[in-house]
Simulated assay, not measured.
Amino acid sequence: MQPPLTTERLIVRDWTTSDADVQAALAVYGRPEVTEWLTPVISNVTDLAAMRAVVHSWTESQPNLVPPTGRWAMQRRSDDAVIGGLVLRMLPPYAQDLELTWQLRPEVWGHGYATEAATALLHWAFTYDIDEVFGLARPDNTRAIATAERIGMEWVGETTKYYDTALQVYRIRQGDLPERPRSIETED
């Protein structure tokens, strides 16, 4: 995403292979309390070398993805700390359904960062030719469900269609997106 998106408190930007981004990614994806909720199910990344390889693959693939799909870092403006990540990707069987995911370091849960960043990302994503975006959550992932609802997503049912596990499905269409806050803009 060029240029990055900014909100009142956050910058949504491409991941880099810098030591700071790799360490920040490990602080998110190296935590079992984060990775246990990911779909498809993955193990947490256990060390810096493995995380470096993952971030490298993200940065290598990003230019080849068709917008609005991608993977971005969520950086706090007050201290430049990367506190999480956002993903827009095609759901299996990779034909038409677009999924939004968000992951945060556990110590910043409950501050509205995921809602703020995801809303900005959705405003940008809907400038492309897409009709809707889905959010998936395991039935007992109350945090993800609450975030999906705060973003403005509506519950549309439960399915095992995507990852062979029962998931709650939430959807947002452009007309359902909350009004864009004045603090959300694209940096020049």
Results as ranks from 00 to 15, higher is better:
M1Y: 05
Q2R: 05
Q2N: 11
T7L: 14
T7W: 12
I11H: 06
I11N: 05
W15Y: 15
S18E: 12
D19L: 05
Q23K: 15
A24W: 04
A27P: 02
G30R: 03
R31P: 02
T35W: 06
E36I: 11
E36N: 05
L38W: 06
L38M: 12
T39E: 09
T39V: 12
P40I: 04
V41E: 10
S43M: 10
N44G: 00
V45L: 07
S57N: 09
S57Q: 09
W58N: 00
W58L: 05
T59R: 00
T59W: 00
Q62P: 02
L65T: 05
P67I: 02
P67N: 09
P67V: 09
P68F: 02
R71K: 13
R71Y: 12
A73Y: 01
M74F: 09
S78P: 04
S78H: 09
I83A: 10
G85Q: 06
R89W: 13
P92E: 11
P93L: 12
Y94N: 12
L98Q: 03
L98P: 00
Q103D: 11
E107I: 04
V108N: 05
V108R: 06
W109V: 08
G112W: 01
G112M: 04
E116N: 10
L121P: 04
F126I: 01
T127Y: 09
Y128S: 12
D131Y: 06
E132C: 01
F134P: 00
F134Y: 12
G135W: 02
P139T: 14
N141C: 13
A144T: 15
A144M: 13
A144P: 04
T147S: 14
E149G: 03
G152M: 05
T160P: 01
Y163C: 11
T165M: 13
A166P: 02
V169F: 03
I172E: 00
R173M: 08
Q174Y: 03
P181W: 09
R182E: 14
S183T: 15
E185W: 14
E187S: 10
